[in-house]
Simulated assay, not measured.
Amino acid sequence: MGIQQIEVYTVRLRYREPFRIAPAASTESHNVIVKIVTDYGVVGWGESSPSKRVTGETPETVVRTLDKIAPRLIGECPLRIERDVELMDSIVEGNPAAKACVDMALHDILGKTACKPLFMLIGGYRTEVMTDITLSIKSPREMAKDAVKAVKKGFEALKVKVGVNPAEDVERVKKIREAIGSETELRVDANQGWTVRQAIEVLNKMEKFKIQFAEQPVSAENLGGLKRVRENSPIPIMADESIHSPADALRLIEAEAVDMINIKLMKSGGILKGKKIASVAEAAGVPCMVGCMG
C-alpha cells in the first residue's frame, strides 16, 4: 500500500467580525487543505492554518513547502507515519504548519484503514471533552456582552483575550465576571502582550475574579521572565507560543517556568509530535490543553 497522489488547495474563510488579540487583528482565515490519495482507495484530509507571527509561515510558504515534500512522499506507506514525518523533516527544516496538514491526512488514513475512530487508535478513551470559546479584545462592556451570549449558548468556559492595556485588561475581566457570575470558568490569554512587571501586577489584581490560568503572559523567548511571572503569580501559568516541540516542553518544565501547556498542531507539526509533547508533560505532571490557530 502506498501514497498515490497528493492534492493541495487554498481556502479563505471570512469571519463574521474582526477578531483581535494583543499583537494584531484578523478578518479571515487563509488556510491550506491537503488531500492524500492511496493506491487502495482510502483518502485522507488535512488542513494547515499558518501564522507568520507564531511559526513564520504563510499560506504561500505552506504551498511552497508542500511542493517540496509531496513528490518525495509518493509511493511511501501512509501507515508508517513516524517514517513519513522523519522524511518530511529531512526534506525541509521547520515549517510545522505545512507538515501538520500532511500528518493529519496520514492519521485520517490510519483511522479509515482501521475502520476505527482515530482517538481510540492513539489511546484516547473520552467520548466528551470540554471546550471554551475565545472572546476577542473589545471594550470591557462589549466583551461582557459577548461573554453573556456565549454562556447562554452553553459554553462553560471562556478564554478572554487580553494583553493590550494592563488597566483595561483588569477591567475587562472584572466586567465579564460580574456579567456571567461565578460558575463559568475564566481563562486569560495575553499572547505575549505584557512585560514581566505588568504580568505580575495584573495577575495579582485578577486573582479575585477566579481565573483558572493565564496563557503566555510574556514574550515567548523570555524564559527567565516567564519563570519570574510563575513564581510571583497567584494564577497558574500556561505556555503557548513558548512551546513548539517536545524539546521546548522539556526545557520549560525543567526551568520550572510553566504550570500548563497549550499544544497546537500548527506549532508541533501535527498529531505525532503533539502526542510527544503531551507525553513529556504527562511524565512531569504538567496538564495540557489542545488549542487551535486561525
Score class of each variant (00 low, 15 high):
V63T: 08
A105Q: 06
S90E: 12
T131W: 01
S136H: 06
I122R: 01
D84L: 14
C77S: 15
R64I: 07
T113L: 10
P117R: 06
A100T: 14
R126S: 12
A97I: 09
D108P: 03
G123M: 03
S136T: 15
I109F: 01
D132Y: 10
D103H: 05
M104T: 15
C115A: 11
V43C: 06
M120P: 02
A97L: 07
D103C: 09
E47C: 12
G94W: 00
D84I: 02
C101Y: 05
I74T: 12
E47M: 10
Y125S: 15
G41H: 04
G94E: 07
S136L: 00
A98Y: 07
G75M: 10
E93W: 01
A114R: 11
P96N: 06
C115V: 07
C77F: 08
I74A: 07
G111M: 03
K112N: 06
W45L: 15
G56H: 12
P78I: 08
S48W: 00
C101D: 10
K116R: 15
T61Q: 03
I122K: 02
G41L: 06
I109E: 05
S49I: 05
T55F: 00
K52A: 07
L135Q: 03
I109L: 03
L79T: 13
I81G: 13
E128M: 14
D103S: 06
V92A: 14
E76W: 05
S90I: 01
K112D: 09
R80L: 10
I122G: 02
L118D: 00
V54N: 01
T61N: 06
E82D: 12
A97Q: 05
W45I: 15
D108S: 04
T55G: 03
A100K: 04
M120C: 08
T65S: 14
S90N: 13
A114M: 11
E93H: 11
L106V: 02
E60V: 05
E57N: 08
D84G: 06
T58F: 01
D84E: 11
A98F: 08
K52V: 05
P96V: 05
R126G: 12
G111T: 07
A105V: 08
K99G: 14
V43F: 02
L66A: 05
L73S: 14
I122F: 01
I109D: 06
E86C: 13
K99A: 13
P117Q: 07
T55S: 04
T127K: 07
E93F: 00
D84T: 13
P117E: 02
I91P: 15
T58K: 04
T134Y: 09
I69L: 11
I109H: 03
K112H: 08
T134N: 09
I91T: 13
T127H: 09
E86I: 05
T131Y: 04
I133M: 03
E57R: 05
L110W: 05
P71K: 06
V85S: 04
P50D: 11
K99H: 11
P59D: 04
A98T: 13
